[in-house]
């Protein structure tokens, strides 16, 4: 007898739980609109040349 009651209660609880999850409607929170656009910077890499200069003469020491 007790077992039957318990099983009935359990079945009701399961049905209620399923009903809660199925019928639950999500609550929409207000959201920020999308931030669009882009700070566009094109490639502007113009370099200044470094020309070659005459080096100092090599010094390996004296021969005598």
């Amino acid at each position: 007898m007790n077992t039957k009651i318990l099983l009935t209660i359990l079945a009701i609880v399961v049905i209620c739980a399923i009903a809660y999850f199925v019928l639950k409607t999500p609550t929409e929170k207000p959201k920020v609109s999308e931030v669009t656009g882009e700070i566009e910077i094109p490639e502007t890499e113009v370099e200044v040349p470094r020309f070659e200069e005459e080096p100092r003469p090599l010094d390996l020491g004296s021969l005598i």
């Binding site: 920020v32 609109s33 931030v35 656009g37």
Partner: peptide
């Protein structure tokens, strides 16, 4: 424009 979006929010 981005500032407008944030102000509206």
């Amino acid at each position: 424009r981005a500032e407008d979006v944030l102000n509206r929010a």
